[in-house]
């Protein structure tokens, strides 16, 4: 564990989480949520949980981002609230 790397990851994680909640464009929100998943994947890898990191990269960043993008295309792209 390198504390500088950990701190950078955690700060980026919080920034990505807040952006994906606040952003009005739902497609961009899905993509930022994918970035959040990749950062989570790096955090798992830092904590030596490689199997979990693998799953997070495949499911969280890959497939579930695509699920959200597919759903956004079926509704409107702009968030109303």
């Amino acid at each position: 564990m390198i504390w500088q790397f950990d701190t950078l990851l955690l700060v980026l994680l919080i920034v990505a989480a807040v952006i994906s909640l606040r952003i009005k464009d739902l497609l961009a929100a899905s993509v930022v949520f994918g970035i959040y998943s990749f950062l989570m994947c790096l955090l798992w890898a830092v904590m030596a949980a490689v199997d979990v990191a693998f799953t997070e990269a495949a499911v969280g960043a890959g497939v579930s981002t695509l699920f959200m993008i597919a759903t956004v295309y079926q509704t409107t792209r702009r968030s109303s609230d």
Binding site: V50, D51, A53, F54, T55, A58, V59, G62, V63, L66
Partner: peptide, 17 residues
Amino acid sequence: SPGGGFQGGVIIGASFL
């Protein structure tokens, strides 16, 4: 190595996606 049925299955599904 890390991986197994779950991860492999997700990646196969992802290729069709």
